[in-house]
Design a protein around this nucleic acid. Structure first.
Lengths: 171, 171
DNA sequence: TATTGTTATACTCTATAACTATA
DNA sequence: TATAGTTATAGAGTATAACAATA
């Protein structure tokens, strides 16, 4: 192989290194500043994600623990812990699925919905505005596109992360 | 205010929500698949970041704990824990700074450098290649640019995260 | 037997505060 | 007094394995 190939490879490696280090730093800061922004509501960033997922139209009438775990990219076991903490705060509730007695459907309580829609939105939109300062609508769309693309790659590296429907679609 | 303004604002909010949810998911997957990739070396993703930082030319001859914490966007206290775990594994070492007896300079041991350069690179470059499949060089540069920009915004939200030099430069 | 969800355990990481030792 | 670093503590999150109930 030529000298130029080696140089290109080394440059690509340095670039990847830098990219993932930036991603690591963003993850740290998302956790850090997000935690601070949500602190007065006693909510963590993981709990923010759970609450946000439960406001999705598709999940509004209740979503099974396993499906929610797949959607959030968290394991079922760890989601059980997250849910019980939110349940203790009266923000979510569980109900047995009539169609399958093994399954539990999770959904927001009235308190949980109010917290998300009314109380938390001040901090959340303030946080979004601060973190995305200087980003045009096109910038946001492009960034989402990149993250989406990386996410698909990540899922390919972790077979368990793919839902049954996605697996079927991929065949 | 007009109806269109409201619609635009609602769209922007939905877009931001989606963006940060994707970022949250990527952070989860970076931790999950990264942990798995580094597992056979007994290294976590946080420890990966520490080791990687210590290979930087500027830090090669030793970096103070506080400066390393600022660079990694981790608190001094938590970095102390990370360092002691790496020290216990014989991967990093501490030395008193001759110029200031309060300061401790951290650097890689020979074992640590070997682990990073020789042993871990197989898993790391494999992980990079997998997670960035389909990303052109331009894509990578653009994504880094976006993450950099967001990082600066995050730092503005968290004054403690800015180093003394950066503060001075901003004046 | 396979699947849904839970519990148990051990460890890492984080946030906060209080502390030691230098400057 | 201020700074560099450490220690202490409590809590959240994670990985892994084992378990109960149901299909």
């Amino acid at each position: 192989m030529g000298k130029e190939d080696e140089e290109t490879r080394a440059m690509q490696a340095a670039l990847s290194n830098r990219l993932f280090f930036r991603l690591y730093q963003c993850a740290n800061m998302l956790h850090k500043t997000g935690t601070r922004a949500l602190d007065r509501h006693g909510i963590t960033t993981q709990q923010w994600a759970v609450l946000g997922a439960l406001t999705r139209p598709a999940f509004e009438r209740g979503v099974a623990v396993g499906d929610l775990a797949t959607f959030l990219l968290v394991s079922r076991q760890n989601l059980a812990g997250l849910i019980s903490r939110l349940e203790a705060q009266g923000l979510v509730e569980k109900a047995v699925d009539a169609a399958d007695n093994r399954s539990r459907l999770i959904r927001l309580t009235v308190t949980g919905r109010k917290l998300w829609q009314d109380d938390m939105q001040v901090e959340i939109s303030g946080f979004y505005a601060g973190a995305l300062q200087g980003f045009s609508t096109d910038d946001r769309i492009h960034l989402i596109h990149y993250l989406d693309k990386m996410l698909k790659n990540f899922k390919a590296l972790d077979p368990e992360a793919t839902s049954a429907e996605e697996k079927q679609a991929a065949e």
